[in-house]
Write a protein that binds this DNA or RNA. Structure first.
Length: 580
RNA sequence: GCGGGCGUAGCUCAAUGGUAGAGCGCCGGCUUCCCAAGCCGGUGACGUGGGUUCGAUUCCCAUCGCCCGCUCCA
């Protein structure tokens, strides 16, 4: 074993090997594989679904069951669309993005530098070599030979707000022109850009059985039948055109933008989103939970479940996928106490993660800088895991002030506050004290937890085969409470009544609610190896001696050592190690 | 989304412009008293779609998926 004070050193190519093991043993399959797979979606198999459930159960037990002042909810994935306007997701999750075709960089169109007709448009490369590459790229793709001056390429100029052109040295008129949108790439100054792409990270769908596309098609057909689109839009939508997105689109005069705004407007009535996080339901149900439970701050509302985001990049197996699972808790406390509660939850959450890990030093805190925190947060820490590709997020613990309750109060018009009959308002000195609680949010990724505990558990060890060769033993050293199968019950050989004795032991485990498997196939060594890969902590083996004196062997996954015990003692050992 | 690489059985690989073989795995049988033993039998693949061709797994195009890097990540 490596230094317990240092992060785990992952075996070479561990992601590749782990992905293969996940598939062959039934932890995680690529989604819809027989149809060629679906990007970034994964299905949890017989072992994976047990592992994920065990992890989530451990979280729920630690966060909800054992705490008097924390309760759970299980909200609908589809919520009222106004929720996402209040939370800021509707606006914040959608930006117009553009790619520079020269430097291949992506940027936000609304933050790009603007230029005016007559302005020169020099393209600046980071070094002379790249300037030369870009010069050739532009010659090839656009048919003009720009003049290179060190890192700078010259010859382009803005002609009008809709057009830029190439001016040969000394020429007064452009020899070629291209359409223009008035801005250039912020990093290199290039005007060669892709179309603006509207990114919307929330999954959209429609609520209701009516075919929305049919409605949209009809409206668009009617509006575009007349020559004057703007007039047709104004005539049809009246007051809606006076302000908001329709007004802005009409003001721009761009047909595509107007039609886009019209489609948004028409689809508004049935448009809903799949939640991009589970957190908002806890704020939205704050009042109901408060009334039915009678809880007083400090208290928490917890929820586990699926969330959906159209991630720009999906990567690293199940680390970042569009459909993922979260374990979140919103902890409501008195304003002014958020600092101490943040410290408390940091410690609690780190204790939880490291409790199940072989390498506690693979977990660490990282405080967010002011620039990366949401504007309303007053402090934020990530719990990070040392993945094979480096440190990465596992859980965020944010101090969110009273922002969310304030936003939902504003948008819903419903007071979301706590009335403390015993305390006086610190500002006025009057009773009762009505306040919006401040929130500490430990938000963990359940899907990421699966990956992190698999990585923590994955080991390759040298072992000697019966033939005397050296081989690698692959073993998942999962914490017994997380392991999908707790014990395998194996007859040493498939005869002399051993299968019957083994099955009787299996029955006792299953009756006790312990997930166990019976296996009589192949040689005993093969069966041990298979269960090592599945992360099964114990193998109970029935052999010749069992028939004589009723004892069995109990094999430990991590050491492969065996103890001979009575059946009762073996079962008791399993039960007590599970803490059940 | 961009750039690069990849795609033959569950896995690792092989062969071929004339419809594909092996090892391991998996399933069944025999055997086996402790760490992937042995024997017999079986299962099983050219990612998808188009084009060229008498004929494509092989050549071309597109598409999908995976990996690496960049970018993005309220």
């Amino acid at each position: 074993m490596s230094d317990p004070a240092a992060p785990k050193v992952h075996p070479p190519d561990v992601m590749k090997k782990l992905t293969a093991l996940c598939k062959s043993r039934g932890f995680v399959f690529p989604s819809s594989e027989i149809y060629g797979g679906l990007k970034s979606a994964y299905d949890y198999g017989p072992l994976g679904s047990e592992l994920k459930r065990n992890i989530m159960n451990e979280w729920w037990r630690d966060m909800v069951t054992r705490r008097e002042n924390i309760v759970g909810i299980d909200a609908a994935i589809i919520m009222h669309p106004e929720v996402w306007r209040a939370s800021g997701h509707a606006a914040g999750f959608a930006d117009p993005l553009v790619d520079c075709k020269i430097s291949k960089e992506r940027f936000r169109a609304d933050k790009a530098p603007r230029v005016r007709p007559g302005d020169e448009l020099p393209i600046t490369a980071p070094d002379a070599a790249r300037a030369k590459d870009w010069q050739e790229l532009i010659a090839k793709d656009y048919g003009v030979q720009l003049v290179r001056d060190g890192c700078v390429l010259r010859g382009l100029r803005c002609v009008s707000p809709q057009e830029f052109g190439y001016f040969a040295p000394g020429a007064a008129a452009p020899s070629r022109t291209w359409p223009f949108r008035g801005y250039v790439s912020p990093s290199c100054g290039s005007p060669f850009l892709t179309e603006e792409k509207q990114f919307n990270l929330m999954f959209r769908t429609t609520l209701g059985p009516v075919d929305q596309l049919g409605d949209l098609a009809r409206v668009i057909a009617e509006l575009t039948a007349s020559g004057d689109l703007a007039a047709a839009v104004r005539a049809r939508f009246g007051k809606a055109c006076d302000s908001g997105p329709l007004a802005a689109a009409l003001a721009s005069g761009e047909r595509a933008r107007i039609l886009h705004a019209v489609m948004e407007h028409v689809s508004q009535t049935s448009l809903v989103y799949l939640r991009p996080e589970t957190a908002q339901a806890m704020f939205v149900q704050f009042k109901n939970v408060l009334e039915c439970t009678g809880l007083k701050p400090p208290f928490g509302i917890a929820q586990m479940g699926k969330s959906f985001r159209n991630e720009v990049t999906v990567e690293h197996f199940i680390f970042r996928s569009c459909e993922f699972e979260q374990m979140e808790m919103e902890f409501f406390c008195e304003p002014g106490t958020q600092g101490e509660w943040l410290a408390y939850w940091k410690a609690e959450r780190m204790r939880w993660w490291t409790r199940y890990a072989n390498y506690p030093a693979s977990f660490r805190f990282r405080q967010h800088g002011k620039d990366e925190m949401a504007f309303y947060a007053d402090d934020c820490y990530d719990i990070e895991y040392f993945y094979p590709w480096g440190w990465g997020e596992l859980e965020g613990i944010a101090s969110r002030t009273d922002y969310d309750l304030t936003q939902h109060e504003r948008h819903s018009g419903v007071a979301l506050q706590y009335v403390d009959q015993e305390k006086a308002d610190p500002r006025t000195g009057e009773k009762p004290w009505k306040y919006k609680p401040f929130v500490i949010e430990p938000a963990a990724g359940a899907t990421r937890a699966v990956l992190c505990f698999l990585l923590d558990a994955y080991h390759e060890e040298e072992r000697r085969t019966a033939a005397g060769d050296t081989e690698l033993r692959t073993v998942l050293k999962l914490h017994p409470r997380l392991a999908p199968i707790k014990a395998a019950v194996l007859p040493l050989v498939k005869k002399d009544g051993m299968p019957e004795r083994a099955r009787a032991i299996l029955e006792r485990l299953l009756d006790a609610g312990i997930n166990a498997k019976y296996d009589e196939k192949a040689s005993i060594g093969k069966r041990y190896a298979k269960h090592d890969e599945a992360g099964t902590p114990w193998c109970i083996t029935v052999d010749g001696q069992t028939l004589q004196d009723g004892t069995v062997t109990l094999r430990d996954r991590d050491t492969t050592a065996q103890r001979r015990l009575s059946v009762d003692d073996a079962l008791a050992a399993v039960r007590s190690a599970l803490g059940a």
